[in-house]
């Protein structure tokens, strides 16, 4: 039986994630309420505006059930989703809540404003060859991570603005997150990696 994977549908590029997942032979459910979280085997938190997602998750009483669920099923967040899964954030709103679970500090809009949004090729060992073409849109960065966090991908020092490795994809047990947006490319390897996490959970 195909597992049901939810896509948090508060706001953002929900449809793109759903399209990627559907191609990987899983059932997709768009989730807007606590009721709809019941029975899913994994959850994707899409790209969008993390402040908006956070405000609406508070208003619609979703943080409680989401925090409970994050200890039980695999979750994957892209861009705003990475911020939602981070234990702490910098340059967010002072009152911005997150689901948490990843022992990282995520810096919002770390690369600048929209004019600074970019595409770049990355080597990601976890998904193998060939190089992965990553799309960053007003993207966050993993500024700090505890030793418990596995780094899946980084922009190497010789290509980064800071002259140091910039961590842009992480995993910690059942939670993973990327600064970039695999859902708006045709490359399904990141989603496949997540679906494999769900299937082996």
């Amino acid at each position: 039986m195909s597992p049901v994977i939810g896509v948090l549908a508060i706001q953002g590029d929900v449809r793109e994630h759903a399209r990627c997942l559907e191609q990987l032979d899983v059932d997709v459910r768009l989730v807007k309420t606590a009721e709809q979280l019941k029975g899913i085997a994994g959850l994707v938190i899409p790209g969008g505006e993390s402040t908006t997602m956070s405000i609406l998750a508070v208003k619609n009483n979703l943080f409680g059930p989401l925090r409970e669920l994050r200890t039980q099923i695999p979750m994957y967040g892209s861009c705003a989703g990475l911020i939602m899964l981070a234990d702490s954030i910098t340059d967010g709103r002072p009152d911005q809540e997150t689901i948490g679970g990843l022992n990282i500090t995520a810096k919002r809009n770390a690369f600048g404003r929209q004019v600074d949004s970019f595409e770049i090729d990355l080597n990601i060992a976890a998904i193998g060859d060939p190089v992965y073409h990553a799309v960053f849109i007003r993207a966050p960065l993993v500024e700090a991570a505890s030793p418990a966090v596995e780094v899946l991908a980084a922009i190497p020092a010789d290509k980064s603005l800071t002259g140091t490795d910039q961590v842009v994809a992480v995993r910690q047990n059942n939670l993973m997150a990327t600064s970039f947006h695999p859902e708006i490319t045709a490359d399904l390897r990141i989603h496949k990696y997540f679906v494999d996490m769900v299937r082996s959970a």
Binding site: Q11, E119, I184
Partner: peptide, 22 residues
């Protein structure tokens, strides 16, 4: 200034994708 490429059609249209439902 970044070694990535900015101003592409994909990052422009992708930015609007992130606004959806808003």
């Amino acid at each position: 200034t970044n070694t990535g490429v900015t101003g592409t059609t994909r990052v422009k249209r992708g930015m609007a994708d992130m606004l959806k439902g808003g």
